[in-house]
Design a protein around this nucleic acid. Sequence first.
DNA 1: CGGTATCCCGGGCGATACTG
DNA 2: CAGTATCGCCCGGGATACCG
Lengths: 136, 136
Amino acid sequence: MKKVELSLPAEPLTLSDKLRRGDLLSAACPSRTVMKHITSRWGVLVLMVLDGETRRFSELRRLIDGVSERMLAQTLQWLEADGLVRRVAYEVVPPHVEYNLTPLGQQAAHKVRDLADWVESSIPEVVQHWNKASAS
Amino acid sequence: MKKVELSLPAEPLTLSDKLRRGDLLSAACPSRTVMKHITSRWGVLVLMVLDGETRRFSELRRLIDGVSERMLAQTLQWLEADGLVRRVAYEVVPPHVEYNLTPLGQQAAHKVRDLADWVESSIPEVVQHWNKASAS
DNA sequence: CGGTATCCCGGGCGATACTG
DNA sequence: CAGTATCGCCCGGGATACCG
């Protein structure tokens, strides 16, 4: 059985390509999962707030307006499992837990920050567009 | 009534600041909505695929693996309402509709692309981290 | 072809109560 | 303080059918 060599333009990535690099357009690719964690409602904000900082759980809760205990804990666990967030627990009473970013997480945070900065600075233009549409 | 001038460090943004620039950390800020559209499950992929290209509805459906008609239509409407996507419908039978990015949308697409590229290229490291955790 | 309308399920998410 | 456990709502989102 000889493997047929194809040379179509824009050849879709092979399975091994996806394992090696990731392809967001493919539903089965693990990059979809990572993207989901990073761009999740609270994931974005956690990465922004932890960027270059070490924070306690309660600090994060206070800084991120509207997040519930449950979702903050879950989001931190997702990001920790992906190797983006590091959790340091001190065995004291009352408990003391600190969170910060791994080198990998720092890279992610910079990309997220870029996007977030752009969104924040573009709000005036977007709102103006909203108003134009509702006035029609 | 004289307005009191404060000069605290890291003073939270005032309401007018938020209207002027946006603040993702505030639950009430419109930037939360825009961020939600852009980082939505399909919003990311739509922006990536439309980056620098004009595509028809059915092309988008084929390019974005797993998206349903309904969610593709809804996502395009969100982004159009935000002023990121432009929709051009030709009055012919059968219908012919093209989508592309506005200048604002192009900026967004670049930020999203940066993030997506990073995620795709980081997959090996993340997967390695997953395996380490499950092996423990 | 490019949608919309309707139905319905699963899971994201918040609220509350409890624990080490 | 830093969570986990449980409950229940809501809505993102898929399936199907229909329309201009």
